[in-house]
């Protein structure tokens, strides 16, 4: 789906969301009468310092002024890979955006990620993965890293990686593989109006505790993460 199609299906009563060269900013009314803030990344742009600072500014302004949920719509590349972005401290800009979204979520502005296209690596962490509930739309293509870069780091050929990707969900790109780990809570049906599915989600929203570990265990994509984290937590608390 395109951004326009996603927004039209989410907000049939209209919206004022605009796409500023891949940086998505705006708001839209919900059936409850509340307004949702809408931010995100579109057109598969890579997320650099200039984009991240606009998004965090918009979220921060809304935290002090508005109420209601925050939707984070995402079709991005990875983080912007350039000398300039790293020179200026891209890690801080991406972390700051993630922190603003997590803070908002925990201060009564529940965040819902809507992954409708691609996303990868640092851009994924700072946007979709920094939300309370991440929704995937069919056709979304998340990936932690592209195979040529992965090949460079793992010293394995692209052909070997492609072969292993077919049989190894924990490393292979793709929406289903990420859903298995617990990163994506639900995949919506693109044939049905998204507004109904959004309202259903809003009506039964979980609290802001991170449950992706339990989800990954239930779905079998991460069998150890939840148990290991809980064991360490328990051991620390016992040892006090």
């Amino acid at each position: 789906m395109t951004l326009d199609e996603v927004l039209a299906s989410l907000f049939p009563a209209g919206h004022d969301v605009q796409n500023h060269g891949g940086v998505v900013l705006g708001s839209a009314p919900l059936r409850s009468g509340e307004r949702a803030l809408v931010v995100g990344v579109a057109d598969r742009i890579s997320l650099g310092v200039n984009d991240a600072i606009r998004l965090s500014a918009y979220v921060l302004r809304s935290i002090v002024r508005d109420s209601g949920p925050i939707l984070v719509v995402v079709d991005s590349d990875s983080q912007r890979m350039s000398k300039r972005d790293e020179l200026l401290g891209l890690n801080e800009f991406l972390a700051h955006l993630g922190k603003c979204l997590i803070y908002a979520d925990r201060q009564g502005r529940p965040t819902i990620g809507v992954l409708y296209g691609h996303s990868a690596a640092g851009a994924f962490l700072a946007t979709a993965l920094a939300t309370r509930v991440l929704v995937g739309l069919p056709g979304a293509t998340p990936a932690v890293m592209d195979l040529p870069s992965m090949s460079k780091v793992t010293k394995l050929s692209v052909e070997v990686l492609e072969e292993k990707a077919k049989s190894t969900p924990v490393f292979a790109p793709g929406l289903d593989n990420l859903a298995q780990t617990g990163a994506v809570q639900v995949v919506w049906d693109a044939a049905l109006p998204l507004v109904d599915q959004l309202e259903t989600l809003l009506a039964s929203l979980p609290d802001s505790d991170d449950r992706r570990g339990q989800l990954g265990k239930q779905r079998g994509g991460r069998r150890k993460a939840y148990e290991i984290a809980e064991r360490v937590r328990g051991l620390v608390l016992q040892s006090r």
């Binding site: 972390a95 993630g98 922190k99 997590i102 803070y103 925990r106 690596a121 994924f124 962490l125 993965l129 920094a130 932690v144 890293m145 992965m150 780091v153 793992t154 969900p169 924990v170 490393f171 292979a172 593989n177 990420l178 298995q180 780990t181 617990g182 990163a183 991170d210 992706r212 570990g213 990954g216 994509g221 991460r222 993460a225 984290a229």
Partner: peptide, 24 residues
């Protein structure tokens, strides 16, 4: 070096969980 690419999805999500846990 970041995410362990041989278990990239689990590693990426671990980082997302850690970021949230740091904030909490």
């Amino acid at each position: 070096g970041g995410v362990r690419l041989q278990e990239a999805n689990a590693g990426e999500l671990a980082i997302a969980e850690i970021m949230r846990a740091v904030i909490e």
